[in-house]
Simulated scan of single mutants.
Amino acid sequence: MARRRGWRRRRNRRSAVAGVALLVAVLVVFWSRTWPFVLAAAALGGLAALVWWGWRTHREIRRRDEVFRAEQRVLDANRTLEEVDKLHWRDFERMVAALLREGGCTEVEWVGQGGDRGRDVTGVLPDGRSMVVQCKLFATHRSVVSGDMQRLLGARTNFTADVAIFVTNTRFTTDAEKYAKDNEIVAIGRNLLASWLKGATLESLLEIGSGGQGDRRHLTEWNKAYGKTSRRRRQKRAS
């Protein structure tokens, strides 16, 4: 059976080659009569390819414009942390994409679908470095742990990105902060996110983002707003 299939493939291949050779021979012999038709067919083929390319390009431009407008609408409607906390995780990722684009990044794309392999947003920073971004929208009493960052580290390696950025609406544990520093992950926690929403430059966030929480003043504000609530919830769960 295998021999028969192999013989058929060789026969079909020889038939195809013979057909092409015959067509070329006919064109050469009758070139004076067939050249107008050959040129017309080539012109029509080129025109069809050009129309197809234009249609595909136009469709891609429209898709990107729709995505951009959707992301910008989410960002414009959610400029405070209280509003951000109520977002769906998809809208949170779209908002981060809009913030990055607003900060001068190019080729920004929201990837956050099934099989994103640890990258929710990709793009190129204003200085030309490629980036992968992971976003986590948590309840405000929760904290990001080091395990939440591991997929991002893998994504930076898999996609050979220059910079890995982790953005969340909550804060990082001490272990997560250390993990981010040891692995050169830019960690943008709740307080830095608040500054970003209010107009802080992306460049400034990249400079201080290794700490995740911001400076001591930011951490003090966090403890005033959420420290007691978090302790009460932990005590309630323990009881």
Score class of each variant (00 low, 15 high):
L205T: 05
L205Y: 09
L193I: 06
E184K: 15
V163S: 11
E203M: 05
E177S: 10
G214T: 01
E177R: 15
G212V: 03
G189T: 04
G214M: 00
E207H: 10
T174V: 10
T174N: 06
W196G: 05
T201Q: 14
L192K: 04
A176R: 03
T170V: 12
L206T: 02
T173D: 13
T168K: 13
L197M: 05
H218L: 00
H218R: 07
E203Y: 06
S195G: 14
K198M: 08
D182E: 15
R216F: 11
K178M: 11
A176H: 07
F172Q: 08
S210L: 13
T168I: 11
E177Q: 15
T201V: 00
A164D: 09
V163Y: 12
T201G: 12
A164L: 10
A187R: 11
A164G: 12
S210V: 04
Q213W: 13
S195Y: 05
D175P: 04
A200C: 01
A180H: 06
I165G: 06
A200W: 02
N169M: 09
Y179V: 11
D182I: 05
A180N: 07
G212F: 02
A176F: 02
D182K: 12
T174W: 06
R190K: 14
F172K: 03
E177L: 08
G212C: 04
N169K: 13
R190F: 02
N183Q: 10
W196F: 09
A176K: 07
L197Y: 01
L192D: 03
A200L: 01
I185C: 03
L206V: 03
Y179H: 14
G199T: 10
I188K: 01
G209L: 04
L197P: 08
A164Q: 09
D182P: 00
E207T: 14
T170D: 05
G209Y: 05
F166D: 04
H218T: 00
K198N: 14
A200E: 11
A176N: 07
T201H: 12
L202N: 02
G209E: 07
V163F: 07
N191F: 00
R171Y: 11
D215R: 12
H218F: 09
T173F: 09
D182G: 01
H218A: 14
I208K: 05
T201W: 04
W196I: 07
D215M: 05
L206M: 13
Q213C: 08
I185M: 08
T173A: 11
V163G: 10
I165N: 00
A164I: 10
